[in-house]
């Protein structure tokens, strides 16, 4: 793997009590009047693997897009205490974002797609292509640098999308139901590969999903959300150690946590509108 060592730059452990990102009373009301998210308080420490789990329409994407800075909260604050800030005081965390669709430039090769964030930063061509090739190799796509998205399978396109998110060596990777459109076998493989990269690299992940099983398999912590208005109903920890593999998937412990989370999700759905 070229450039492997640089991709695996493990960030220094955060001082205790200083999360990577802290959400305080975050609320989002869209112009249409929909209250999509209400009263979210959430600390995400460095190195965390957090899933946002909830039924469709409960505001998972809205919350994720607020963390990404793509939309502003209507009230409440989102602080990045450990990240650099620009002259106007706005936080400049290094973000990677993976959408539900691969969202690639169809006119660019896999390599150019993976190199896009670096190109926008103004990095010289040879340097950014080296790094993009490293990121592609990291997601198992060595040899496909010159291939266009059209000629890649759905799973491979998603891998390019992940390589693009990783190429800037982000502090935090935000993923919005990234594997929802894939078949189960491909999804399992991508789950394993994602965990492997996360363990090696040590960035933080916020992973949106509506699959109980996927969230339990991947995360250290699960925020169970409820709809109307969207809110975090409960947090569930998954104590199992990493690395996790097929053995974990079939263990009694996994089944037990899935049960707990399913019950929490069921309650969240049943209580909807009550708050």
């Amino acid at each position: 793997m070229p450039e492997g060592g640089t991709l695996a730059g493990v960030p220094p452990p955060a001082p205790p009590g200083r999360p990577l990102v802290a959400l305080q009373g975050v609320e989002k009301r869209y112009a249409t009047g929909t209250l999509a998210v209400r009263g979210v308080n959430l600390d995400i420490p460095r190195g965390e693997f957090l899933s946002l789990l909830g039924p469709s329409g409960c505001g998972k994407s809205t919350l994720l897009r607020m963390i990404a800075g793509l939309i502003a909260p209507s009230s409440g604050t989102i602080d990045w205490p450990a990240s650099p800030h620009d002259a106007r005081g706005a936080a400049q965390p290094r973000l990677g974002f993976v959408f539900q669709e691969p969202t690639l430039l169809p006119w660019s090769s896999a390599l150019s797609n993976a190199a896009l964030p670096l190109k926008l930063e103004g990095m010289p061509r040879s340097e950014r292509e080296d790094r993009a090739a490293g990121a592609l190799a990291r997601v198992g796509l060595a040899g496909f640098e010159r291939t266009y998205p059209r000629a890649l399978s759905g799973g491979m396109r998603m891998r390019v999308s992940i390589a693009r998110a990783l190429v800037t060596r982000p502090d935090i990777l935000l993923m919005d139901e990234p594997f929802a459109a894939l078949d189960e076998i491909t999804r399992f493989r991508l789950n394993n590969d994602l965990l492997e990269i996360w363990q090696e690299t040590g960035f933080t992940v916020v992973f949106v999903t509506h699959s109980v099983f996927e969230s339990v398999y991947l995360s250290r912590r699960i925020a169970v959300m409820a709809a109307r208005p969207g809110r975090i109903e409960r947090e569930v920890g998954v104590p199992a150690p990493y690395p996790r593999g097929e053995a974990f998937r079939t263990s009694a412990e996994y089944a037990a946590v899935c049960r707990t989370v399913s019950l929490a999700l069921g309650e969240a759905i049943a209580h909807r509108g009550a708050a």
Partner: peptide
């Protein structure tokens, strides 16, 4: 990481 073998020919 394992390589991918689902490449369309």
């Amino acid at each position: 990481m394992t390589g991918v073998d689902d490449a369309p020919r």
